[in-house]
């Protein structure tokens, strides 16, 4: 990685630590028996929700950069994207280990029959494609196509929200909150909206799509 000012490095390190903290916290809860009678499900749900929060955070970075002109938001974008993928992968792993008990037949059935599992798997596949093309080499290789590929993150967001909606049983309050934030972030990327974003600090500059 190219040399970077020390304060940028510290900021990145801070974000790294912050993103790691919830996993440590949940693991601690499981270790001391404070995660309830179904610790595997506790991890599964927290990791899934954590992945969604990270995805929304990642998607808010570009609008935040435009709003504030602070570079700090854009330098953690790849890192948060990779954290999103990590949480989502651990979420899948928890499902395989703790819910299915590594019963591959059951997984096969779920992948054929359960819509919420299917959309979840599709979302994870998209995130995987974005994660493996997040390095400079892939960016160079893909050139212009890189940007259109990475717009698929919004498709992943829609699938994740659908995945979540289909596991809700009786109360939509929490889901509605996430869906509202997700919808807001998508609206912010519409060119018509993006160009009208107010800017605080710095001189106006043509909005990039």
């Amino acid at each position: 990685m190219a040399a970077q000012p020390r304060h940028i490095f510290a900021w990145r390190l801070l974000v790294f630590a912050a993103a790691l903290t919830p996993i440590g916290w949940w693991s601690y809860h499981v270790a001391v028996g404070a995660a309830g009678p179904e610790p595997g499900r506790y991890l599964l749900l927290n990791l899934g929700q954590g992945a969604l929060v990270l995805l929304l955070c990642t998607l808010s970075l570009t609008p935040l950069t435009k709003l504030t002109r602070w570079k700090g938001f854009s330098v953690i974008r790849r890192q948060l994207g990779l954290w999103t993928f990590s949480y989502a992968s651990l979420h899948l792993l928890s499902y395989l280990l703790f819910i299915l008990g590594l019963n591959w037949t059951a997984l096969g059935e779920d992948l054929q029959k359960r819509p919420y599992i299917i959309v979840g798997a599709l979302a994870l596949l998209i995130l995987l494609a974005l994660a493996v093309t997040s390095n400079r080499y892939a960016m160079r290789k893909l050139g212009k196509r890189w940007k259109s590929l990475h717009k698929w993150v919004y498709a992943a967001l829609c699938l994740v929200l659908l995945h979540f909606l289909w596991v809700v049983r009786a109360d939509l309050a929490e889901w509605s909150g996430y869906a509202a934030v997700g919808l807001g972030l998508m609206l912010l990327r519409l060119p018509a909206v993006a160009q009208r974003l107010p800017r605080f600090g710095g001189r106006p500059k043509r909005a990039r799509a």
Partner: peptide, 18 residues
């Protein structure tokens, strides 16, 4: 429709044995 009823997780369980 959303999950199988063929098996169940007898609680409490642990990470090492669901």
């Amino acid at each position: 429709p959303r999950w199988s009823q063929a098996t169940e997780r007898r609680l409490p369980n642990s990470l090492f044995s669901p």
